[in-house]
């Protein structure tokens, strides 16, 4: 039996080697060498350059704000979903996931059309003689885009982990005299930590590395670390520097993975 199981994993292993391990190896190779192929740490130290460091802090700030907003919005939603009947809640989850079937770029461009100066929202506001909303090409618009695009990644793990908390556990807490608030803070919240951690990393990492959202909704006016790396590949053709900066970002991704490994030992926070 054992070897057939291993055989089934074959396609995935090939996929992983070809599209994850080899590219990762290439990033390490380029990131740690200069154009002559000699070992150097210069590409990584380039992050200390004031503009690049600024863009990293800015990206960290926006990703952090987006993650907090996502968590604040998703947790109550997941709690509500837990309370209503299973067949109805899965419909709501389905509706939530539905937009993810559409291309990420298109959805972000749609936000651009909505938020634009002569966009849909401003036309509606203008019709009712309300003040116009001028957030396009600002950091606020980028946060909007991040929250919109990554919210499902927060909702799904939270929903999963909350659904697994049995009602008997909650009832036991009530039986022992806990109030609703006490039950939440001493029972539900601690039990949902794996989902929270997994949701946070799944929102934080893509938000930190995005360059499309800042280009489209920030109007190219706001520089994030993702844009800096993109420019190294598309304009200067400096794959070494681009890879070196990517390695810096990878540190944050590794921290996130370590957090998941620590809190989510049984894989409970998985999204799907």
């Amino acid at each position: 039996m054992k070897w057939t199981r291993k055989l089934l994993a074959g396609p995935y292993l090939i996929w992983m080697a070809g599209f994850i391990l080899i590219p990762l190896g290439l990033i390490f190779y380029y990131g740690l060498t200069d154009s002559s192929g000699a070992f150097t740490l210069e590409n990584i130290m380039a992050i200390t350059d004031p503009q690049r460091a600024n863009s990293l802090w800015r990206a960290l700030k926006l990703a952090l704000i987006s993650t907090v907003i996502c968590l604040a919005a998703a947790y109550p939603l997941a709690m509500i979903l837990k309370r209503i009947a299973k067949n109805r809640s899965s419909l709501i989850v389905f509706i939530f996931v539905l937009p993810m079937w559409m291309n990420f770029l298109l959805r972000t461009m749609a936000w651009q059309v909505l938020l634009d100066r002569n966009g849909v929202i401003n036309n509606v506001l203008g019709f009712f003689h309300l003040p116009r909303l001028n957030i396009i090409n600002t950091q606020t618009a980028i946060i909007f885009g991040m929250v919109y695009n990554f919210l499902p990644f927060m909702v799904l793990p939270l929903y999963n982990v909350l659904m697994k908390i049995g009602n008997d556990v909650v009832e036991a807490a009530y039986d022992l005299g806990a109030t609703k608030v006490q039950t939440f803070f001493h029972v539900i919240l601690p039990l949902s930590v794996p989902g929270i951690i997994s949701g946070i990393t799944m929102v934080f990492v893509p938000a930190l590395t995005t360059f499309v959202i800042s280009n489209l909704l920030g109007g190219g006016m706001i520089l994030l670390i993702g844009n800096v790396i993109e420019q190294e590949f598309t304009f200067t053709s400096n794959w070494h520097l681009g890879s070196g900066l990517s390695l810096v970002l990878m540190v944050f991704i590794l921290i996130s993975m370590a957090l998941i490994a620590k809190y989510d030992k049984e894989g409970e926070g998985g999204a799907f």
Binding site: P50, Q51, Q231, E232
Partner: peptide
């Protein structure tokens, strides 16, 4: 040349930042 491109890239970073 690479040097020129890098010069422009540094200036671009400054403007964007």
């Amino acid at each position: 040349g690479t040097e020129g491109d890098e010069k422009y890239n540094e200036l671009w970073l400054e403007i964007k930042d």
